[in-house]
Amino acid sequence: MKHIILTLLMIFAPMPLVAGAVAVEPAYYCAKISSGDQITSKGQKLQDAGAILQQDRANYHRFNLRDFGDQLDPIFADPAVRAQIPRLLAASQTPGSVLREIEKGTPDICVDVSGKAMTVTLAAPAAERPVAGADSYPFEGRWSCEVAEFTFTSSTYNNGSENLPIREIQEGSDGSYTLMFDDDYMITLSGFTGSAMGWFSHSSQDNFLCQKL
């Protein structure tokens, strides 16, 4: 009887999660793969595209070694998530020609992380990439945002006490805009009605309703 019970427990016991099945938050960024991304922090040569992409993000977030064309991403500052890059790349349909270019060359790339895969495509050099958005953005102007008056242009953000240069603007599929600044600081502006918008800080998690002035 005891053997029967043990057998049943083994059959119906929950299966452990497979590490390769873990999904990560979606993200999109572009980067320049340089010779500095193709070696470890100890100077060892990297041969695998996944390891090179992981080193590129480590250089960006951990070592502050950033090439012209490197963009901020919202997820790989976490070393545990960064460690999943080789697995995410292996699960994608990235062409072998792109992988070889990462391993042997110094290409400009764009990376799309979605669910359980990370797809890489070759991109135009940073100086030739089109800037997202049109001549003006819906967030430009002066806004009363509950705690202070914020002012936005296409290239700067004034938080009521200082001007911050906008390093990058990413437009979301929902019409939101994520503004990226130095030191990995970023805010997302969304819900535009013409006279109001939402303001969200990724670092503090503060969320304000802003009224156009």
Rank of each mutant, 00 (worst) to 15 (best):
R62K: 13
S195P: 05
P16W: 04
L164Y: 10
S35P: 00
A13R: 04
F208Y: 15
S92I: 11
L209S: 10
K212Y: 02
E146D: 12
A23I: 06
A127T: 01
G36K: 06
R57S: 15
V113M: 06
A196K: 13
I166G: 10
S176D: 01
Q170C: 00
K116C: 05
S201G: 09
V120K: 04
D67Y: 04
T121H: 08
G20S: 11
I39C: 02
I75A: 05
T7I: 08
D182L: 13
V18E: 11
I5F: 08
I33R: 09
P86F: 11
P138G: 09
Y29A: 10
S201Q: 05
Q71G: 12
V147R: 13
I169Q: 11
Y28N: 07
Q170K: 13
A132I: 11
W199F: 15
A148E: 12
T156Y: 02
E101F: 00
G115N: 06
V24Y: 12
G43W: 08
A132E: 15
V113H: 03
I39V: 15
K42C: 00
C110Q: 07
V24P: 15
S92Y: 12
Y185T: 13
P26A: 09
E162S: 12
E146M: 04
Q55R: 15
F139C: 06
F139D: 00
L189G: 04
A148C: 01
A31E: 11
M186L: 01
D56W: 02
S176P: 02
L6H: 02
A31V: 05
W199Q: 05
Y28P: 00
R100H: 12
G36E: 08
P138F: 11
K45L: 07
H3I: 04
F200G: 03
V113Y: 01
D70A: 06
E140Q: 10
S155I: 03
R100F: 08
S161Q: 11
R87A: 15
E171W: 02
G36W: 00
D37P: 08
M186K: 09
M10P: 02
S155G: 06
I33D: 01
E103R: 05
P138V: 04
K32R: 14
G69S: 04
I187A: 03
D48K: 14
A19N: 11
S155C: 00
G69T: 07
T106Y: 07
A148T: 12
Q205V: 02
P79V: 12
S41Q: 11
D56Y: 07
L6T: 05
D112S: 15
L164S: 06
